[in-house]
Design a protein around this nucleic acid. Structure first.
Lengths: 205, 205
DNA sequence: CGAGAATAACGCACTGACTGCAAAAATGCG
DNA sequence: CGCATTTTTGCAGTCAGTGCGTTATTCTCG
């Protein structure tokens, strides 16, 4: 990795750090791009060559997460889709390790802002595409069919619920973070089974 | 209803109609507030005393829908939450009747725009609050607990899936529109049951 | 009907996110 | 070092959205 790329990476981190700090201090809406640029020692215009929008500075890791889920689903062989999702999540939580100050502040900023929560949800829905695709392959249906879309949407929604409700403390350890996951998966698996049954016997209630 | 209110209503409709028409013609992004104002024969500034944002002009009926769901849940007596939701949906579909030109164009505009889909989802998530509350009452849990939140999120997501995938034709009749609903409810009910079981016997897989 | 109060429409000036473009600066390479 | 490439920056502009004061309209009450 050349000097150029290392420098770019450093600048990106500086912007991110400055942005999260300012958001936490004065609030998201009360912080302007100009503020962030000044704190990160760049020109305001430069901000947008690192991040496409003000919101996106809080979700820079999303693309990597998305790709890693897609890869995992593609490489799951004949394992169950939900098993693959579970493995992906535990891996994610494991990789993140103990949340640092920046991560905590970031979550807090997001949770405090309706608009940012919506943005996060919008990102989350991108997961639905890959999940629906995987389910479609597994069931022999098309990705546009109701069942794959439903399972994907419910799974994505379930993942969203994993984040503790605002005001609740962050989970301390990995085991504690995983406990709700099993509830979510139990819920989803039961639903998936019900759909399977319905496909075999449509008259069932 | 006095002249004032009638006139306001008429203006609101005029703005809505002009906006949807222009969005359909030139696209959402290529249409400015000034364009809409001109077409609706109002001053640009006036637009914002009818709608809080450009997006919201496409979702003027949301508040009424939300209230009607909340009322129905509040007045459901000891009926099941999901039954109440089902009743609400059939009532909605019934009340809408045959979709007119404006409604069709509106859906098309929304479906064609990532940002608008996200906005719609954001609105949909407001349903989660009331649903979680109702589930909490029914189960004796708190609305912030995982199970009510999960059920509410999955239900809201399931409702979102009811809209046909982009590119698919709108359902022609009421029966056709209701068919996917039963799949969604079967999915949700199975999940709810699984959570019930888990609460009684946490060691269960 | 005719004040005058209440409410709605409007114009204006402003903020702030975001974009296109072209000049200037930094960097990498031979 | 000098040249090509990439990055940074400044500038001017668009557009959504807001605050505020003014004008026009409608309602109410005498």
């Amino acid at each position: 990795m050349g000097l150029r790329e290392r420098k770019k990476e450093k600048t990106a981190r500086a912007i991110e750090e400055a942005a999260v700090r300012l958001f936490a201090e004065r609030g998201y809406d009360a912080t302007t791009i100009a503020d962030i640029a000044e704190a990160a020692e760049i020109a305001p215009r430069t901000f947008f060559s690192y991040f496409p929008s003000k919101e996106s500075v809080l979700f820079s890791d999303f693309d990597a997460k998305f790709r890693s889920l897609a890869d995992r689903l593609a490489a799951r062989g004949d394992a169950d889709v939900l098993d693959a999702v579970r493995a992906w999540i535990t891996e994610m939580l494991d990789a993140e390790g103990v949340p640092d100050q920046l991560m905590i502040a970031r979550h807090q900023v997001i949770d405090d802002n309706e608009e940012l929560l919506a943005f996060e949800r919008q990102l989350t829905t991108r997961f639905e595409g890959v999940i629906a695709e995987a389910v479609a392959v597994e069931t022999g249906l098309e990705p546009q069919d109701l069942h794959p879309r439903l399972i994907a949407a419910a799974t994505a929604a379930g993942l969203g619920v994993l984040r503790p409700a605002p005001g609740t403390p962050e989970p301390a350890g990995l085991a504690e973070a995983l406990e709700p996951l099993d509830d979510v998966l139990a819920f989803l698996r039961a639903g998936v089974l019900a759909l399977d049954r319905r496909r075999q016997d449509p008259s069932r209630t």
